[in-house]
Design a protein around this nucleic acid. Sequence first.
DNA 1: GTTTGCTGCTTGATAAATTTAGCGCGCCAT
DNA 2: ATGGCGCGCTAAATTTATCAAGCAGCAAAC
Lengths: 127, 127
Amino acid sequence: MAEQSQQRTPAQALGAYLHSLRTGRGLSLREVEEASGKAVSNAYLSQLENGKIAKPSPHVLHHLALVYDADYQKLMARAGYIAPDAERSAEARHGRAATYAIEHLTAEEEQALLDYLAFIRARKGRP
Amino acid sequence: MAEQSQQRTPAQALGAYLHSLRTGRGLSLREVEEASGKAVSNAYLSQLENGKIAKPSPHVLHHLALVYDADYQKLMARAGYIAPDAERSAEARHGRAATYAIEHLTAEEEQALLDYLAFIRARKGRP
DNA sequence: GTTTGCTGCTTGATAAATTTAGCGCGCCAT
DNA sequence: ATGGCGCGCTAAATTTATCAAGCAGCAAAC
């Protein structure tokens, strides 16, 4: 007991979700294995649902998403992978004022600058 | 001979793409390693570009997408992860931040680029 | 010339994902 | 009973991604 403090790992959240998806459709582990075209073994599914796998490969998740007719991105998110568009977080930090101008470019300008940069770097020594 | 229809594996397609992205920005393997905050080793990148890795983790792809300012979903697709049809958005956006190459400039380069930017903008009458 | 410092690359080692084989349980029909 | 049959689960084995270290090659500097 007293395992409460054990914060639910994303793996467990995913497991619970997968479990509900499967049972909700009245499928057995082996049925899912079949339905996925043997792409996912029943044993692995079990571990998955019990939160014992930290990072299932997207292939697996994709197959399961198909079988369950669930949203692939949602599964990915629950698996702890990057959220579909929450990726705009990034590490855009660094605050040189001049760079601001450089950050706001049209596609054309950006390409032109990259080309030019490649040019001057090729001409001189590497920084 | 015997080389003929060596169907390009998704890994190789991804590798070629990553390679073009990197060289297109004039970055070395180690520079990318740095740019990713050590998230991806240069050794791994090499294997990746040479199509030796079948299923790179999305984390890696995400990091590279940030470094190259490429579309994460597109990379995923090229890595063979999601069905081509599932990639709906894919390109529209452009409000992106600058690429690593453009973010990490020497003072010299930055000045040169800013000058050049001013030049092309003046030329085209851009705001 | 040799040293330095890059480049891309290959090679083990390690940890983790995934599979194969098998266990124990309950259920239904002999 | 009792022999199957399907269930969920698990231990061991295999495969794979990933990294740290080190290689040879090349360019520029000393």
